[in-house]
Structures are given as C-alpha cells and as structure tokens.
C-alpha cells in the first residue's frame, strides 16, 4: 500500500490545510487560581497546560542561586493518555528532561531574569494530548502562563514547527506529518525583534532548503503571536471588567 500523501498536487495537506496554515488554536489564561500564572492551549489536537510559580526564593540548595539573575526551572511531563498508544513514561525520562532543558533555554532568553536576582521561577508544562508540535504547544502555553503570572518578558515567545515535503515547506506539523520521517524544525521566536530563542532540527535537510523552511516557521510563529496577543488582550479585558465591577 502506498503511504500517505502528505501534500496533494493541489496543495492540500492530509488534514486539508494548505502548506503555510496553522491548525486551529484555542487558549485560555488563568485556569488555576493557586498558581501565580497558568494557561491552557489547544493547537489542533495537541493540548498542553502550563503553570508558573515565582519569582520566589530558591528552593533547596541555596548554592543554586544566581547572583545576577533569576533561575528558570522548567519541568515537562506528558500524560500517559496523551498519545494513541498508552505508554507509561516514568517521570524524568530522557525525552522529558530534554524537553525541560529546551524550554528552559527558550525562557531564559525571553524572561528578563536580571530583574529578580537570587530568585527562582518555576514553569511546569504538561502535555495532555500529543498530536505533533508538542514543543511549540508547550512554549506557547508557557508564554501565556508567564504573562499571566506577571513576570516581565522581553517579548512573547511564540513557537511553531515546520517541515519539508516534496520541495514545499509545511508549517505546524501534525503527528501524521511528523511520523512520515521528513526533516522537521522547531522554532521559538521573539516576534517583535525577530530574535530566535531556540531553533532545533531533526533529521537532515539540504542547506539549500533551510532558508525556506525557516521562513515558513517564522511566518507561522508570527501568526501564532497574533493569536496569542488576541488571547492576552481578551483576558486582560475580562480581568479589568471583573476588577471594575
């Protein structure tokens, strides 16, 4: 049997999107009252929850404290029911650690950590359902949660993935598209300045195509920004309405 056709001659992807289109994004901020900040995001069928605590004093060993900036601690986990096949993932497995590390790198680049020296910011992200682009969903959820916590950031961090199929760059890969094994790239962008907070690539991609794929990913990340910005503004509106009452 022939494999799935990821991109038809007419330019439609398996789920009906065109090459540069994002999946449907829905997000809410302030979903948990206990936390300093929290957010829930759905990007297609990928669903992630982010919770932020801090800035607060360093927990555990004082030696970890940084004299000039805040320590960003990121933990990633995924629910056992998040993928099609139910798999037990022990806490702190390799993949989760790696993801935690990537998130930390991303947010260290975005949060104005020097404003809170010798303190700590905790970001916990859990993926409830994984359908491709988990890293991006985590970053986007965490951005909203950090904003919700009122921690100053340089800018939004907006992430999106991109892949490359038959000479065309595809934005925001779904699980089917990721599983096809082509090259994929995850990009976290600070949209205002165009700075890249994190860029990661799986599999090999010919140098000639990199620019195009990167271009697609950053355009998609900017689209994500527009959407997140709308969510934040709406949240602020609602909050001020509540306060106003």
């Amino acid at each position: 049997m022939a494999g799935l056709e990821l991109l038809s001659d007419q330019g439609y992807r398996v789920d009906g999107r065109r090459a540069g289109e994002l999946r449907k994004i829905q997000a809410r901020m302030g979903v948990f009252a206990q936390a300093d900040g929290s957010a829930y995001i759905e990007q297609g069928n990928t669903k992630a929850l982010a919770v932020v605590y801090g800035p607060h004093e360093i927990r555990g060993s004082r030696a970890r404290a940084l004299p000039d900036r805040a320590l960003v601690n990121c933990q990633y986990s995924s629910a056992t029911f998040s993928t099609g096949e139910r798999k037990r993932r022990p806490h702190g497995d390799r993949k989760s650690c790696e993801m935690g590390l990537q998130l930390r790198q991303t947010f260290e680049a975005a949060i104005l950590t020097q404003l809170h020296p010798r303190s700590q910011i905790d970001i916990y992200v859990q993926v409830l359902q994984a359908d491709g682009g988990t890293y991006s969903a985590c970053v986007n959820a965490a951005t909203l949660a950090v904003l919700d916590a009122g921690i100053p950031m340089r800018d939004f961090v907006c992430a999106c993935s991109a892949g490359f199929v038959d000479g065309t760059a595809l934005a925001d890969l779904s699980h089917v598209e990721e599983a096809a094994g082509g090259p994929q790239l995850a990009l976290a962008l600070l949209p205002a300045s165009g700075q890249i907070a994190l860029l990661e690539m799986d599999a090999r991609l010919h140098e000639d195509h990199l620019e195009r794929v990167l271009e697609t990913a950053s355009r998609a990340a900017r689209d994500v920004h527009t959407l997140l910005d709308r969510v934040v503004r709406q949240h602020v509106c609602e909050a001020s309405l509540l306060l106003g009452d």
Binding site: V14, G16, G44, N45, G84
Partner: peptide
Amino acid sequence: GGVMKVVREHYLR
C-alpha cells in the same frame, strides 16, 4: 496487535 484509537483532524474549507 493492540488496538489504538486515532484521532485526526479534518479541516473543511
């Protein structure tokens, strides 16, 4: 051999 539930999005335009 297990049975897996697959949820796929299908966009209509």
